[in-house]
Simulated scan of single mutants.
Amino acid sequence: MFVSASTDCFPDLSFRGALDRLGDLEYTAVEIAMFEDRDQFKPSYVLANLDQAIDTCRNTHRLDVVAFDTRITATGEAHYEQFLALCRLAKAVKVVTLTIPSAEVGTPFNEEVDHLRKLVDIATLQGVRVALKSQIGRLSEDMDTVTVLCDNVKGLGLTLDPSVYIYGNAQGRAIDKLMKYTFSTQLRDTNKNGFQVRVGQGDVEYGKLISQLQKVKYNRALSVYISETEGVDHAGELRKLRLLLESLL
């Protein structure tokens, strides 16, 4: 295992600006956020400029690219066209895991299974793994739903964000059952009253989490994902969590 951080820790900066800040904070690996509703690195841009996107991902200021965190807003066939472009980009730059959001709560289960199967089929042909992102307000907020989806869609995994299961509806439930599905992680500190709190003031047991992941032979990134909060030293929090995770590895 190793420590990385998401470019979406700095959503107001350019892609290059986010890389520079992470480098300044002594991160050596990066998870690239590719959100259509952000300005850094849009899926539509990847589809239209694949060769340029490959060059950009190969020139990340000595930061190793470890995963893509994606959010496509296009619908219908356009959605799958952009997803295929992201998979081709991932293959070209040797990224293994591509994170996607699950459907919103209330989406028919069979509809989501069909959609996910199509995405996994596309990704598999490119040698890429698809992971659902743990998120409140989406199907992945429920641990039982995650296990059923992963069991029903062969090859589907999870980008585990423990905060969702500490702050959300699953408060107090053990997350052990999710470990075998985990392809990637996104981390901050959290308690039942706040989705993001200062590092050390929350309930995320990082040592226990690492031990749980080691039991299933997880050897990928522990990706820091801390948003800027008014009155809190953002850079200090990013540095603190990096140092904490590195000390546990």
Rank of each mutant, 00 (worst) to 15 (best):
D12Y: 08
D12W: 04
F15K: 13
G17W: 00
Y27P: 06
A29L: 01
A29V: 05
V30A: 03
E36T: 07
R38E: 05
Q40I: 14
F41Y: 04
K42E: 03
Y45S: 15
Y45F: 15
A48L: 14
N49A: 02
D51L: 10
I54W: 11
I54T: 09
T56L: 12
R58E: 15
T60Q: 04
H61S: 09
R62W: 11
V65P: 07
A67E: 02
A67M: 07
F68R: 01
F68D: 01
D69P: 02
T70D: 01
R71F: 10
R71I: 14
T75P: 05
G76Q: 07
E77S: 05
A78D: 15
E81R: 03
E81G: 12
F83T: 03
C87Q: 04
C87I: 01
R88H: 09
L89S: 09
V95A: 06
E104V: 00
E112M: 03
L116Q: 09
D121E: 07
I122R: 05
I122L: 11
V128H: 00
V130Y: 00
A131M: 03
L132C: 09
L132F: 07
G137Y: 11
G137R: 14
S140R: 11
T145H: 08
V148N: 14
V148W: 06
L149V: 00
L149G: 09
N152C: 09
V153A: 00
V153Q: 09
L156A: 13
L158S: 06
V164C: 06
V164I: 09
A170K: 03
A170M: 03
R173D: 11
R173A: 15
D176L: 02
K177T: 04
K177G: 06
T182K: 05
T185H: 00
D189E: 05
N191V: 01
F195K: 01
V197C: 07
V199Y: 00
G202R: 00
G202C: 06
G207F: 04
S211E: 13
R220K: 14
R220P: 15
S223D: 15
Y225K: 10
I226F: 00
D233N: 12
D233M: 04
H234M: 00
L238C: 06
L238V: 02
R239H: 04
L241N: 10
L243F: 00
L244Y: 04
L245Q: 14
E246P: 03
